[in-house]
Design a protein around this nucleic acid. Structure first.
Lengths: 139, 139
DNA sequence: TAATTTAGCACCCAGATGGTGCTCTTCCAT
DNA sequence: ATGGAAGAGCACCATCTGGGTGCTAAATTA
């Protein structure tokens, strides 16, 4: 429906939060309380992000998640791909099409898809945070 | 899931088809046979498009649908809006948000949404068709 | 060893989406 | 005027995905 799933939405929120505390390990509990999101679900999402190595996790007291790389280098496209698969306007663009022959808009949709993907690749998690010039003095 | 619905997909295909026969009334049956799409569903979609006045319909023998305006002036965004509601990355962007307070990526998502919308507003149905320089000599 | 925190698995529910059947109405052509 | 063609409306169903939860295991630190 041309919408991000909640997984992506929550994931982006959490990543943005983590971006605002560079270096620190933040527990799911903390993030959830801060952002008011459903705990189990966010946990699920963070796990996926960590499996994809966008985050790293530490267990035990004082543990939690943190970014594996500066938010300025983390493209939104990457996040969405991890959380909901390839960025594409239609399934045929993501995998393959059984209508190829009769599909007259194949190339056109291809172009749209590419443009959308560019938008998502051109923006980073760092840019999600409200005005905050280049992270003045952080890690 | 950041995908067009099939309704949009089929709708765009049909519009592109109609764009390739400017002026002519094409019946649902004809379109369906040509593009190999599910009849009832496509009919449903075309009805919606005609209700939104992107198409005009004529009944009876020789009837069918045709574009109400040149395809060069019909933005993809318009079609998607008719078929699946406002173009927005999240529901909060389309309507309103109950997390506003704790949502730290509001402005950021707003920017993404605007960019995506621009992509869809910048492309027309005419551009969906494969290379075809400005419709040489048609209506 | 106890407490904290992530990881893995299995499951449920609701709503959106894709798809179909049937009947009614409109309208053209003869 | 009349019959057939074609769109419109309505009601319905099946399936899939997505949101959300519970419980237990494994890891880590104090």
């Amino acid at each position: 429906m041309l919408r991000l799933t909640r997984r992506s939405e929550y994931g982006l929120m959490a990543l943005a939060y983590l971006a605002s505390r560079p270096g620190e390990y933040c527990s799911v509990r903390e993030i959830v309380e801060e952002l008011k999101l459903p705990k189990r679900l966010l946990a699920e999402v963070l796990k996926d992000l960590s499996r994809a190595e966008l985050l790293e996790a530490t267990r035990g007291p004082g543990g939690g998640y943190r970014l594996t790389q500066p938010a300025e280098r983390l493209a939104l496209a990457r996040v969405v791909e991890v959380l909901e698969g390839p960025v594409a306007m239609t399934d045929c663009m993501a995998h393959s099409c059984d209508l190829e022959a009769s599909c007259i808009i194949q190339t056109g949709i291809g172009r749209v898809t590419r443009n959308i993907r560019n938008v998502l690749e051109g923006m980073t998690v760092a840019e999600l945070l409200p005005a905050q010039p280049e992270t003045p003095l952080a890690v």
